[in-house]
């Protein structure tokens, strides 16, 4: 009877496992709020081009800095563009770039970390020294340098962000690998003569996956923060593309008399970052991983 239950537990489909995790996440208030905000933003990113009331780049000097009204819900900016339109479109670039960026970060950081944790020795030492060196260079300096020399196109931003936010994952993945490496099943896989590749794929990845995914989710919110900071500094998305960071930086000089054009993108960006953060926290708790002792690396 008992064995039967265990058997059934293991037979659960992947879909059932994922939905289990999501239900656990949504059962906490903070997780529920985070998930709802994130889902809202993702849906908005998909449908906003179809529901935007005005053209996001239509400049109209006669409509400059209009206060919010029935016609222009969030008012207009210094070029007479509708702030509501630009706000609901403003998250698309950031979401897309940082989503693919974190995927890249997860992949290379996770795999390199697992590999280093597994092989150990000289290779591990050398790689970790290089990772440490990269960690000690402020990311913003490196990103600004790359972007100013190579340009701000998506093909530059995604790999560059993916690279710079992956180096922290290397450490997490390596530490997680160290936790499982001494366990019996790895030793027996070695004794059976499995290759490193097979051990990584069949034995280690299923065991460290959770820790790496949680780290990746957290990196996503940090990357979003970093990317918006780049845009804010004028090194990210180029105008007239609507982007929250860029909108805030443009509207900042005029906020003493047109605060609406800076409030709308602030609400958009803050809610998305908080949403991703809460979701990542809930995700960590649902998987039973404590993130609260981590420092802001």
């Amino acid at each position: 009877m008992k064995l039967d239950n265990i058997y059934k537990e293991e037979k659960k489909s992947n879909f059932a496992k994922v939905s289990d995790i999501i239900i656990t996440m949504a059962s906490r208030p903070s997780g529920f709020i985070g998930l709802s905000i994130l889902v809202f933003h993702v849906i908005l990113a998909f449908i906003s081009p179809f529901i935007a009331p005005y053209d996001f780049k239509a400049i109209n000097p006669s409509l400059m800095l209009q206060a919010p009204s029935a016609e222009y819900w969030f008012g207009t900016d210094d070029l007479g563009r509708d702030v509501f339109t630009r706000t609901i479109l403003g998250g698309r670039t950031a979401l897309t770039i940082t989503f693919f960026g974190s995927l890249i970060a997860l992949l290379w950081g996770g795999l390199l970390g697992i590999f280093c944790g597994l092989v150990g020795g000289k290779t591990d030492d050398i790689v970790m020294r290089i990772v440490d060196a990269f960690l000690s260079i402020p990311w913003i300096l490196a990103m600004l340098l790359i972007v100013s020399l190579l340009g701000t196109s998506t093909e530059v931003l995604i790999p560059a962000l993916g690279f710079f936010y992956g180096k922290g994952i290397v450490r997490v993945a390596r530490a997680a690998t160290h936790d499982v490496i001494a366990k019996d099943f790895i030793v027996s896989a070695r004794a059976r003569g499995h290759s490193n590749f097979s051990i990584i794929w069949n034995e280690i990845i299923p065991n460290v996956r959770d820790a790496i995914l949680v780290e990746g989710a957290m990196r996503w919110s940090w990357m979003l923060l970093g990317f918006s900071s780049l845009s804010f500094l004028g090194f990210g998305v180029s105008p007239p593309t609507p982007d929250w960071g860029l909108m805030i930086s443009n509207a900042r000089g005029l906020m003493s008399f047109a605060y609406w054009s800076v409030i709308a993108p602030i609400v958009g960006l803050s809610s998305l970052i908080i949403g991703i953060n809460l979701t990542a926290d809930a995700f960590a708790k649902a998987l039973g991983i404590d993130r609260s002792t981590k420092a802001p690396v």
């Binding site: 805030i248 906020m255 003493s256 960006l269 803050s270 970052i273 802001p296």
Partner: peptide, 22 residues
């Protein structure tokens, strides 16, 4: 604290200027 640490620096700084200075 969650709000304070997740909101980007440029947003909290901008809000501070808007509220306290302006």
């Amino acid at each position: 604290t969650i709000f304070a640490m997740t909101i980007p620096e440029f947003i909290s700084a901008t809000l501070l200027i808007l509220i306290i200075a302006i």
